[in-house]
Design a protein around this nucleic acid. Structure first.
Length: 395
RNA sequence: GGGGAGAUUCCAGAGUGGCUAAAUGGGGCAGACUGUAAAUCUGUUGGGCAACCUUCGGAGGUUCGAAUCCUUCUCUCCCCA
């Protein structure tokens, strides 16, 4: 009897869930900065937000428990290209998608593999239909098309799916940038159509984010932002930045594009960045960020703090027995001394990269939470000016 | 006691007359890292800003020129008794 009831309830609940698609509401603004809530079937995301990168279904060196309870991550990334190669669609589908596979029950966003079109440029070829990759693992050939990338992200079950794009390399001449942008636009149409022809596989809703390209050319960026805005989507992304262009150029393009994208939808600046980049991005109206920097640089002994950047391998920390971050509420930040963390890195102990990754991610999440608070209080620019200066100081 | 091998820049270890301030690896020091082919990669490592100076166990010698050849001293390791 109870079983039947539970089945009915869960079925009803599921229908209710599915009818309640991804929603974004802006609670407060401060200048162009926004504080909002993005609703997904796996929980709400308070924006502006930083999303830890977990390319292969794991945030390197960090357990999901720590990610949830200490870092307070609200959403993490996965990567379609990497998960397609390993463990592959079969295993993921059997597991009930990536959520079922790795046990993370909060939102997941998957990058489409568009970045790999850029970063694996030596072992891929762009064809009329899509991209042929040579696996970086065993050299085998695989074709990615807008359609099968949508299918794969359905299989992964990402709450937010990204359109398949070409992350235009930098520098790119205007002609190439334009061609690349047009290709991304064509692919977006195919992604969008295929996305709406297919359904979620695991009972939770999925949203598709289109991506702006256009390199550093303002007219192309304008054209691209207008083009992708025509597609009704729960959010919009800016790609092809932080690929080597001057920082000021990135800021300029970001601001320009934000002014064009729909006001009532979240904007995601892909692959960015340093604490300063994030602070500035928010001030231009960005709501979502992701970057490997806190984890990768953490593994390489770089610590981001509210007071500046530390290289934990440096000799100057050898006999500094103060905590790695006094003003952090995180337990490991108070109990780990600089001297000890340096020792871990110098000795090659895996705990060093782990602690640094946890610290950096927790710092990034605290930074965007503070930014959000400043927006709520309406004094974002004042907060941002001070925070930007402090966080980028070299200690 | 007899026989043999060897001592090189922080360490290990190449080099056996000029191209050698001396390969390579380790260690040290510093730097890079932005939708992760990364627990990775790069630079540097006798002194001096430089011309140049001081270095290959010690001392002496041969030579235009020596880490490299000769003499001797000191020390280390191996084998036999």
């Amino acid at each position: 009897m109870f079983k039947i009831l539970r089945t009915i309830i869960s079925r009803y609940y599921r229908i209710f869930e599915l009818s309640n698609s991804m929603n974004f509401s802006i609670q407060h603004t401060s200048g162009k900065a926004r504080a909002g809530i993005l609703t997904t079937d796996h929980g709400d995301i308070l924006t502006p937000i930083f999303m830890p990168v977990g390319t292969l279904g794991a945030v390197k060196g960090v357990t999901f428990d720590v990610l949830r309870n200490d870092i307070h991550a609200q959403i993490i990334l996965g990567n379609t290209y990497h998960l397609y190669l390993r463990p592959g669609a079969g295993i993921l589908q059997q597991a009930g998608g990536l959520h079922g596979f790795n046990g993370w029950d909060r939102p997941i966003l998957t990058d489409s593999g568009g970045y790999q079109v850029y970063s694996l440029s030596k072992i891929r070829k762009i064809t009329e239909d899509g991209v042929v990759f040579q696996s970086h693992i065993d050299g085998s050939r695989h074709q990615f098309t807008p359609e099968n990338v949508m299918d794969m992200q359905r299989v992964i079950g990402a709450d937010i799916m990204m359109a398949f794009d070409e992350c235009t390399p930098y520098p790119a001449d205007r002609k190439y940038a334009q061609k690349s942008m047009q290709l991304t636009h064509q692919w977006l149409e195919r992604c969008y159509n295929h996305f709406h022809k297919t359904k979620p596989l695991y009972g939770h809703n999925q949203g598709l984010f289109p991506i702006v390209q256009g390199s550093v050319y303002e007219d192309l960026r304008e054209q691209s932002a207008k083009f992708i805005s025509q597609f009704d989507s729960p959010g919009y992304a800016i790609g092809g930045l932080s690929v080597g262009e001057p920082t000021e150029t990135m800021y300029k393009i970001t601001e320009q594009v934000c002014d064009i994208l729909p006001q009532n939808k979240p904007r995601y600046l892909m692959g960015v960045g340093t604490p300063a980049n994030i602070i500035r991005g928010i001030s231009h109206g960005i709501d979502m960020f992701d970057c490997v920097m806190p984890t990768r640089n953490g593994r390489n002994a770089m610590l981001f703090t509210r007071h500046g950047i530390l290289n934990m391998r440096n000799k100057k920390w050898e006999n500094d027995f103060s905590p790695i971050d006094e003003c952090s509420p995180l337990e490991i930040d108070k109990t780990t001394t600089k001297s000890y963390l340096r020792h871990l890195f110098v000795a090659g102990e895996m705990l060093g990269p782990i602690l640094a990754s946890i610290h950096n991610l927790a710092f990034y999440l605290r930074l965007v939470a503070e930014a959000r608070q400043a927006v709520m209080e309406g004094n974002y620019e004042i907060w941002a000016a001070e925070a930007e200066k402090q966080t980028m100081t070299r200690l």
